[in-house]
C-alpha cells in the first residue's frame, strides 16, 4: 500500500490527484521513471507505432500501392522484407499499415468505450426503465451474431472506413456496456455511494467521482483487449470478403492476403501478424501498469 490511510478513509480518490503547483509533466515524468521495465517497453512500443503512423510517407521507401517488382519477391532482392502478392513493397505496406490500422482501431475503440461506458454506468446508477431500455436494446444487438450483423450492415451501407468504424464501434460498445454495467452495479450498492446519495450529490458527481474511478481498472483492462479485437474483426471481415478497401494497407487484410504462404512455412505473413501482436502486448503492458497503480497495491517484486 502506498497510501494506506487514504484507502480506509475513502475509496474514491485513487490515485491521489496531482497537486497543481508541482506541474503535471513533472509528476508524469516521476511516475514514468518509477514504472516497471515492462511498462517502459510498452510505452516505447506505443510511441514508436505512433511515430511510424504519423510519419509514414516520410519513412516508407515507396508509395503505399506502388508496384515495385514481381509478386513475392524474396527479401534479398527487395530489402528488407520482399514484396507482397501484387509486387508491392512489404516494408512500405507495413508502415502504411500502422497508420491505417492503428488509427482506425483507436478511433473505433474510443468510440465504443465512450458509448458503451457512459450507457453502462448510467444504466447501473439510474436503474429502472432507463436500465431496462438500454439493457434490452443491447441484449437484442448482442443476440445477433456480431460478425454476421457487421457483414449485413456493411453490405447495406457500403464498406467505407467511416461505416466500418461506426458499425464495429456500435457492435463493440454493447460488450463494453455489459461490463461497465456489471462492475458499476457492484459499486452502486456500496456504502459510500449510498452516503454520497444521502449527502445529496448529483448524478454527474456520483458517476464521475465515485463510480468511474472504482470501475476504471476492469474497463481499462477491457480497453487493452477490445483495441486489438478491432484488428481481428477487420481481418475476419476481410476473410469473408469485406473489410478495408484495397489498396489501403491494413495489417488484418495483409495477413489475409499472404496467409496461404504460411502453408509452405514462409514467414512473410508473420510480419503483419507480429506487428499486431507486438502492439497488443505493448498496450497491455501499459494497461497492466495502470491497473497495478490504481489497485493501490505496492509493488511486491
Amino acid at each position: 500500500m502506498t497510501e494506506p490511510e487514504s484507502q480506509f478513509e475513502s475509496v474514491d480518490a485513487m490515485p491521489p490527484p496531482p497537486r497543481r503547483d508541482e506541474g503535471r509533466l513533472a509528476v508524469a515524468w516521476r511516475e514514468l521513471k518509477k514504472a516497471p521495465f515492462s511498462a517502459k517497453i510498452g510505452l516505447i512500443i506505443i510511441v514508436t507505432y505512433i511515430f511510424v503512423a504519423l510519419f509514414a510517407p516520410v519513412i516508407a521507401p515507396y508509395g503505399e500501392s506502388e508496384i515495385i517488382g514481381p509478386q513475392f519477391e524474396l527479401a534479398e532482392k527487395a530489402p528488407p522484407f520482399g514484396t507482397d502478392h501484387l509486387g508491392r513493397d512489404m516494408f512500405t505496406r507495413l508502415i502504411y499499415g500502422a497508420r491505417n490500422t492503428v488509427g482506425i482501431a483507436l478511433v473505433t475503440t474510443v468510440f465504443a468505450f465512450m458509448l458503451g461506458g457512459t450507457l453502462g454506468i448510467l444504466a447501473a446508477t439510474l436503474g429502472g426503465w432507463m436500465d431496462q431500455l438500454v439493457s434490452r436494446t443491447v441484449d437484442v444487438l448482442m443476440a445477433i451474431p456480431a460478425l454476421i450483423f457487421a457483414m449485413l450492415l456493411l453490405t447495406i451501407f457500403g464498406t467505407s472506413v467511416v461505416n466500418l468504424i461506426i458499425i464495429i464501434g456500435v457492435l463493440d460498445s454493447t460488450r463494453v456496456f455489459r461490463i461497465a454495467r456489471a462492475v458499476s452495479l457492484n459499486v452502486v450498492v456500496m456504502d459510500f455511494i449510498e452516503s454520497a446519495r444521502l449527502r445529496g450529490e448529483g448524478l454527474g458527481w456520483i458517476t464521475l467521482r465515485e463510480i468511474l474511478p472504482n470501475i476504471m481498472p476492469p474497463l481499462v483492462a477491457e480497453f487493452g483487449l477490445r483495441f486489438c479485437f478491432v484488428f481481428l474483426t477487420i481481418s475476419a471481415l476481410s476473410f469473408l470478403g469485406l473489410g478495408i478497401q484495397p489498396p489501403t494497407a491494413d495489417w488484418g487484410s495483409m495477413v489475409r492476403d499472404t496467409s496461404t504462404l504460411i502453408t509452405y512455412g514462409e514467414l512473410v505473413p508473420l510480419l503483419p501478424a507480429a506487428a499486431i501482436a507486438i502492439l497488443t502486448i505493448g498496450v497491455n503492458f501499459v494497461v497492466d501498469w495502470f491497473l497495478h497503480k490504481t489497485s493501490g497495491l505496492k509493488d511486491e517484486h
Binding site: C228, F231, S235, A236, R256, A273, T280, I281, N284
Partner: peptide
Amino acid sequence: VNVVTLSSISTPEFF
C-alpha cells in the same frame, strides 16, 4: 503468460 496469451489473441483466428 501475458505475452503468450496476448500474442495468441491478437493473431487473426484463421491465421
